[in-house]
Amino acid sequence: MSDIFPKWTNRLPLKIAIGAVLIGGALTAGTTYYFTPKYTRVGYQPIQPISFSHEIHAAQLGIDCRYCHNGVEKSWYSNIPAASTCMNCHNQVAKDSPKLELVRESALNGKLISWVQVHKTPDYVYFNHSVHVNRGVSCVKCHGQVNHAEEVRHEKPLSMTFCLECHRDPAKHLRDPKDVYNLDLKISDVEQEKMGTKFVHDWKVNASQNCSACHR
């Protein structure tokens, strides 16, 4: 009788249990780590047709975001500027630069510049820039420090959790609307709390958590 199950089988259940826990744990950890937007999106930095630098234009020259992205306060979509907007300066500045070949061509005969879109919510999500920027949510909250980017990079996950974290408690993020375009502004936590609470109260901010706000 004693030979049917050798002695090592006594420890088998324990080993199977440990194995299952390890594999299960690794699968769960791996999935949350690798299959969520924090991994899949953050860090996306496509190669653009023109090496346009926000560092030069926004930080060094101090051009306001709205000089180029002039739809951001008015519509859901923050437009990429037309070639004519670039040419307003580049007809005199660096006007023969080979890097601007495509811009000149586009301004001349209307050829499209195929900028690669970096931030892109799924089509079943309704997002709107104007509600946010006109209520004191700065670009930096959702795009990171674009103004210092040589190339635009996807800095924030823009997942549903990300949106909801703010919608649950906007006071931690709101600032004076005139500072929305100042991406370098540093606000201490205490001051933020005070200011944010005041804005939420004064403007009756209601950042909806209803599914139908973002999925319409």
Partner: peptide, 21 residues
């Protein structure tokens, strides 16, 4: 996480992410 990638993000459950609009 967060390492730079030149390739478009993977859409894990792509069901209705990109629609005909």
């Amino acid at each position: 996480r967060g390492s730079t990638s030149r390739k478009p993000p993977i859409e894990v459950f792509p069901d209705m992410d990109r629609q005909l609009k």
